[in-house]
């Protein structure tokens, strides 16, 4: 799902961001409810990733990176908790999180750029997962900053088509997740 309608005017990897891991019931329209709430309340989403959670049938996990400038965290929590399909929310401060993101990019190749491209791919620790005579597709699973760096490096190459998933995160081991102002 594209986060277009509520994607705010935020920098890549904003400093003042928070990561919310939201466990929701796996029901029709739940993503629209969450996205609609953010749009309605003027909370900016930097990225959003959604997939089935541990117990696949009943729940999904939505990982939302919110711009903490536009959204007092207590408000985001309180309003999210009011959605009947939201089962649990945990907030992971960026410093306490292990964050990863997946980047896929297809790049047009020719004799002139092949060497420099291989250097970029090697330096980023990305892997080549598909090739044909004129293209190469690379993959990187890394921190958002790592993905940013590869994206910038690839910008120099014409004919790049690049996709990023938005980050997912888990708490760093040994750090308790904290949950301000539970609404229920």
């Amino acid at each position: 799902m594209s986060p277009e309608p509520f994607l705010g005017d935020v920098e890549h990897s904003p400093v003042r961001h928070h990561i919310l891991s939201v466990l929701v019931e796996n029901k029709a329209g739940v993503l629209a409810r969450v996205a609609g709430l953010f749009a309605r309340r003027g909370f900016n989403i930097y990225s959003l990733a959604v997939a089935p959670a541990e117990s696949h049938e009943r729940f999904s996990r939505i990982t939302i990176v919110v711009d903490a400038e536009t959204a007092p965290l207590e408000q985001v929590f309180g309003q999210l908790h009011k959605l009947v399909n939201v089962v649990d929310i945990s907030d992971i401060a960026p410093d306490d999180a292990v964050e990863r993101e997946l980047l896929l990019a297809t790049i047009a190749t020719d004799v002139d750029n092949r060497t420099s491209l291989l250097d970029v791919i090697g330096a980023a620790n990305a892997s080549i997962i598909d090739v044909d005579a004129h293209h190469v597709t690379v993959m990187l699973a890394a921190t958002p900053e790592g993905c940013d760096a590869l994206e910038r490096a690839l910008e120099a190459h014409p004919g790049v088509e690049l996709h990023r998933t938005g980050r997912v995160a888990v708490p760093r081991l040994g750090v308790p997740t904290h949950e301000p102002a539970r609404s229920r």
Binding site: P72, E74, Q75, G78, H81, K82, A181, S183
Partner: peptide
């Protein structure tokens, strides 16, 4: 009874949810 109302408009000293 709605925790989201607390600190929404006015910062409070004591919250009784």
């Amino acid at each position: 009874i709605d925790a989201a109302e607390i600190n929404k408009i006015r910062r409070v000293e004591v919250a009784l949810r």
